[in-house]
Simulated scan of single mutants.
Amino acid sequence: MREVVVVEAVRTPFGKRNGGLSSTHPADLSAVVLNALIERTGIDPAVIDDVIWGCVSQVGDQSSNIGRYSVLAAGWPESIPGTTVNRACGSSQQALEFAVQGVMSGQQDVVVAGGVEVMSRVPLGAAKGDGVPYGPNVLARYDDYSFNQGISAELIAQKWGLSRRVLDEFASASHELAAAAQDRGAFDGQIVAVVTEDGNLTADEGVRRGTTPDKLAALKPAFQDGGVIHAGNSSQISDGAAAVLVTTPEKAREIGLTPLVRYQAGVVTGSDPVLMLTGPIPATEKVLRRAGLALSDVGVFEVNEAFAPVPLAWLAETGADPRLLNPLGGAIALGHPLGGSGAGLLTRMIHHMRDKGIRYGLQTMCEGGGTANATIVELVTR
């Protein structure tokens, strides 16, 4: 098996619902990050063997293989293929894993992985339409459970004894960390400005400065009466895209590129589809075992903040240092553009690792239906 490295990682700003990116077609938004990879690396796009693109709601503006049409929107040669994958919120993290597998096996040499979601144009749940996506056998197996992620978040909060105050404190901290990261320019090197009808969007739109637990206490529960989950301690509905360039160290040298990180290990797991969002817990254990690392070896953890109980339950079960968790804020503050989130988290983590000289980073995503991806990368020192 060949060694695999990431040589570039970029993302758009994450726009808020009906915000600065809402007028941009998903294929055109994807083209922004695809072309940013070319501009930053200086490579000829013709060397790229494939583009593997994550997208969750593959209907409307995101239908008809958005991965392929993103390549064409970027103006790349028609000879470059593209495909679209859906592993729910982990779609673009899974795109990375597929890209790594292609390069590691020797079937491909240079692959782009990433994803997009413009939730302002294709709302969450749009792909369902009038259908029943789970089927009668699944519904019968789980006693006609609704498979509602918000209810799953409520169940997790109950199981781990997470109070509304604790969840709101975590959510407030996410905004505080994200605002501090923006102020010190931590995102500047990874974000690609997007030219829109209203001007250039250069920064994540979702950060709400001055958010406090007391302010969040005024919000009504979103999923059940007397519940603890509300809009303020849940991930934001967002628009965005992200992309990474994957190859081997040898190919990187051949085309004049310097690796950022080395791929160490990746896994995907299944877990209880009713709790649904607890998959990062077994996925973390599994990926550490596969990488031959201890939790204490890892210097940064990116655990997607789908809902505040997800990273908090993960912390409780793993015993990780909370100071290393989502140090630049997470999806509660920065947004969660579904199909683009996995590559967006990876981009954020890679740049943070380089900025701080962190050797190992671990990223994990909870996903609808009770699956989870986890990936470990290692900083390449020059």
Rank of each mutant, 00 (worst) to 15 (best):
T12F: 02
A46S: 15
E78D: 15
L34N: 01
R323Q: 12
D61Y: 13
K16L: 09
S238P: 11
P249K: 02
G102Y: 01
E254H: 07
V274F: 06
A27Q: 09
A36H: 04
G206F: 07
E317I: 11
N200W: 08
A74Q: 00
G75K: 12
G299R: 05
D198N: 14
I358L: 15
A313D: 05
Q158S: 13
S79A: 14
Q107A: 15
G114M: 12
V192L: 02
L29Q: 01
R11M: 06
K215R: 15
P280N: 01
D168R: 11
N137T: 14
V122K: 01
R209E: 01
L21P: 06
M353C: 10
Q264Y: 06
A126F: 12
E78A: 15
T202E: 11
R68F: 09
F301I: 11
Q190H: 09
A333G: 04
A73L: 08
G329F: 00
R208A: 03
Q158L: 12
K286H: 14
T211Q: 00
G232D: 05
G292M: 14
I332S: 00
A241G: 10
R121Y: 05
A203E: 09
T371E: 13
V122F: 02
D61M: 12
Y142R: 03
E302K: 04
M365R: 03
P249F: 11
V303M: 09
T247C: 12
E117Y: 08
D198I: 08
R165C: 04
D44E: 11
